[in-house]
C-alpha cells in the first residue's frame, strides 16, 4: 500500500520536475548544501567537550590533542560499508562489547537522534 503510494508520488514529482525544468537545479543544490551542513554540525559535536567529545578518545583529522582510547577515525566508508552499523555502534557500543569505554550516546540520550545523524554524516567523510 505504502509502496504504491510512494511510486505515485515519485511519478508525480517527476512530472512536476519535467514540467518546471527550470526549478530542477535549485532543490538539488539546496540538498547538497544541507548534507554539508549536517556534517559540519556533526564536526562541531565531535569536537565539543560537552557534547560528543569524540576527540577525547579518537584521532580525528582536523582535531588537536586527540585521545588514544578508541581507534583512529579514518577510512570510515571502507570500514563501515553499512552505515547503519556505524550508527548502531555510536548509539550503543555496549551491544558489541559490554565493558567498552565508549558511552552509549543514543541509549543514554547523551546526544539526540538528530545529533547522532549529524555526527554520523561527519564521520563518514573521514
Amino acid at each position: 500500500m505504502m509502496k504504491r503510494k510512494s511510486r505515485v508520488l515519485v511519478t508525480a514529482a517527476g512530472a512536476a520536475a519535467i514540467l518546471f525544468g527550470g526549478l530542477v537545479i535549485e532543490p538539488a543544490v539546496h540538498n547538497s548544501a544541507h548534507a554539508e551542513s549536517a556534517a559540519d554540525a556533526g564536526k562541531k559535536i565531535a569536537f565539543s567537550r560537552k557534547k560528543g567529545n569524540c576527540i577525547a578518545c579518537h584521532i580525528i583529522a582536523g582535531g588537536t590533542s586527540p585521545g588514544t582510547i578508541g581507534p583512529p577515525l579514518v577510512g570510515m566508508q571502507a570500514r563501515y560499508p553499512d552505515k547503519s552499523k556505524l550508527r548502531a555502534q555510536i548509539w550503543d557500543a555496549t551491544k558489541a562489547n559490554p565493558i567498552t569505554m565508549m558511552p552509549p550516546f543514543g541509549r543514554h540520550k547523551i546526544l539526540s537522534e538528530k545529533e547522532i545523524d549529524q555526527v554520523l554524516a561527519f564521520i563518514m567523510t573521514l
Binding site: S65, G67, T68, T94, I99, P103, K109, I110
Partner: peptide, 24 residues
C-alpha cells in the same frame, strides 16, 4: 560497576585504559 550517563566504571579508565590518553 558502570555508572552515570557516560556509563564508565572506575575500571574503564584506570584498569582497561590505564596509560592511554583521554584527550591530552
Amino acid at each position: 560497576t558502570k555508572r552515570g550517563q557516560l556509563n564508565f566504571s572506575c575500571a574503564n579508565c584506570h584498569v582497561q585504559n590505564a596509560g592511554n590518553k583521554i584527550r591530552s
